[in-house]
Every structure is written in structure tokens, then in C-alpha cells.
Simulated scan of single mutants.
Amino acid sequence: MARQEINIGTAPTGVGGDTPRSASIKINAMTQELFARQAQLGTAATLDAVTGSDDFTPGRVSLMGHAGWGSSPISKAPTDDANELPRVSGLFQFGNGGINLPNPFVQILQIANSGGYVWQTAKAMLDESVYTRGRRGDGAWSPWRADINSSVFALGTGQGTVPGELIGLSAAQTASPNKANTGLYSYYLHPDGVPGFGAISVLSQAWGHDPQWRAQLSMAVSGDGLHFRQFSVNPGSPAPNWRSVLHNGNAISGVLNAGPSGALPINSGLIERGGALDNWYFRFAGGLQICQQRFTGYTAGATRNVAWLAAFADTPVAVFHNIYPSVSWDSTARCYGNVGSYFFTSDVTLNNIVTVTAIGRWHA
């Protein structure tokens, strides 16, 4: 109810004022309301209220906006430390840097309990980044960890076929657009896509130390195309070029312009080699394999049997030897080979240098 004023009349006798009865009725009504409200407030009725949003004096009554709830977060200075925020649940804002922050401009939601455990979630003020961390009861803080969301790690479809959207630009940079955040995107017939591959999935990363730089990996959806590139989104930067990643599949056939069937010539694309000067092999994508071994000296009637450094898929097409006559000529030497090794023998003992070469296939 509204406050009821008691009319005390005219001095000195109170002529014209409330009678004792009417005054008592007003007093009873107002005190009855006060005691009813006090019963609702409980012990808070006799406590002091906080003096501001950052007043955490124990035993004081909280008001709207206290600790940042229902109002603006508590503002912190650049010299303040996020590790040393009051051990209370509340909202805090670092608008110009601070200590132990994941980002210079963040708003922090903090949840704390009496056991010393604290949980903080920091939302960047200038982008959509979100970070979380916790404090154990022993006082040790875990490192800030960035949350994955659709703004900082996008999962979805590229925005149509307009050049410059998300994937990059097909000409030299004339502006510095907000390119794709780190994420996985799918594109179809994008003008900045990989030539010859209409449907692609692109894994794109914005380099955290300097976000102007992008690294992208393109994976063809309906073929074996695998391509990568790096580029800058700064004005005037050169147009990025896709580069092929070579492997023993159809990516190589695309580089070598194989026929419509994708079949590779037997001597296409060197993809593997190994060994040292006296024992080595080459493997080509189309299946061709060349092995060679070299040794010095042999004994009459003794057969030398040594394994190839890399096995063949079937009996080698050709195995032959060459003898360098460091001592004298040898017309009795002969050799042959199989999928795993070669055999060499001679009727004389000499210290000649022998090179054995095999040519065959390592796959069909």
C-alpha cells in the first residue's frame, strides 16, 4: 500500500488532526505490511546491499547487475589477470587486453564453487572464437582451448560459383576479403576450383599467426585428383595455383595425359626408388621396375645367388650382366634371374667388376 500520513493537527494541541484511533489504524496497517515483507525477505531484510557490480563482500545482498548478471559485464583493465578474477560466478570483460587471456578482447563467463574449482568460457569480441579452460582445486589452470564451431571451423557447402567466395580468387588480389575460415567445404563447378575436377572437397586453413595466409587441400569427389596450394589474401598478392600431389593412382594419369581409360604407359611416372650405389631399384607408376646390383670378384664354378632389393611381380622380362675386365676378359660368365633374386656363375676365377640388371614389372 501507499504510505499513510498521520495528521498531527495544529500546534500546540493537535486540533484538527487524526484521533488516536484513526492514527493507530494507520500505524497497524503499515507495520503489518512491513513485517509481512520482512518475513518474505528473511535474513536479507537485516543485511547490507552490495555497493556495486564488483562488490563481493561476504554477507551482502546482491542486486540486479551484480557480478555482471542482468547488466554489463564487470570491466577489467589491461593490467588485470584472468587467473586472479574474484572466485565468484560472474561476467567479466577485457576490452583492451589483459594477462592470461586467449584473445586480447574477450568477455568471460566464470562459474566458481567453494572448493576452489573455476570454469571460464571466453567469447572473443571481434570474431566468433570461443575458448574454455578450468582451474583445479590445487590452483593449477588448464590451458585455453578453442572450441570448434561453424564460424571458426566451417563444415558446409561453398556459396555458389561467384569468384572470390570462400575458396579464393581466380585473379590477382585487388581486395582483402574475409576468406573461408579454417574448415571443410564442398564445391561444384567453382571457377576457382581445380581444372578438370568439377566436384571437390576443400580443407582450408587460415594460419593462426598471420591470418592473411591460407593453405588448402583439394580432394576430388568423383576421381583421384589430389591438389594443394598456399596463398595470401592481401591486396596485390598473386593468384594462387593448384599443384598436383603425385601418387600411384589416377592423379599421375591426369598429369601425363593418359588415354580415356586412364591406362598408364609402363614407363610412366617414377614413384619409388631405393638402395645405394651398388644395389638399387626404380619403380614406375605403370608397373615398370628396374633392379641393378654390382659386385667385384668371383670363383670358378661357384654360383652367386643374391636377392633383388625389390621383388618383381612375375619372372623378369630381361636379366643380363656386364663384366668390366679389370683383370682379363671372361667369355664363360652367365646369369639368369627370377622374381626374387639372380644367379651368376663362371668357369674361371677373376677379380672383374660385374653389374647385373633386371627389367620387369612390380604390378600387373
Rank of each mutant, 00 (worst) to 15 (best):
A199Y: 07
G287S: 05
D278A: 05
D224Q: 05
L169T: 15
H227P: 01
W144K: 01
Y298S: 08
G95W: 05
F320Q: 10
A258T: 12
P163I: 09
S328T: 14
Y281L: 06
N338G: 08
H227A: 00
S253G: 14
F92G: 00
Q212W: 02
T345K: 03
T51D: 05
K26T: 13
F295H: 03
T349K: 01
I266V: 15
F282Y: 12
E128Q: 13
S142Q: 11
W141C: 01
N28V: 15
T161G: 08
L217P: 06
I266Y: 10
A67V: 05
L63P: 04
W308L: 12
A302L: 14
G297D: 12
Q293F: 00
T19H: 10
S268I: 00
P102D: 01
A180E: 06
T345F: 02
L350C: 01
L277W: 02
G340Y: 15
I74R: 07
T57M: 02
R214V: 15
S218E: 03
M1W: 11
T46F: 13
A276E: 04
G164W: 05
R136H: 10
L264F: 10
P102G: 02
V118T: 09
S232E: 06
G198Y: 03
T46Q: 11
F105C: 02
N83I: 02
G156I: 14
G160C: 15
L91C: 03
T31E: 09
A318W: 03
S237I: 11
W213N: 11
W242V: 10
P20I: 09
S261N: 07
N322C: 05
D314A: 14
L203R: 01
V245D: 05
G301T: 07
A276I: 06
T357G: 01
F35K: 09
W362F: 07
G59D: 14
T349D: 05
V327G: 02
S71F: 10
P211W: 02
A215H: 05
S346T: 11
A300H: 06
A67H: 08
F343P: 04
L288I: 00
G286M: 10
G9S: 13
P191R: 07
Q230Y: 08
G137H: 00
M30V: 14
P195I: 07
A318P: 03
F153K: 07
N305E: 08
V339Y: 03
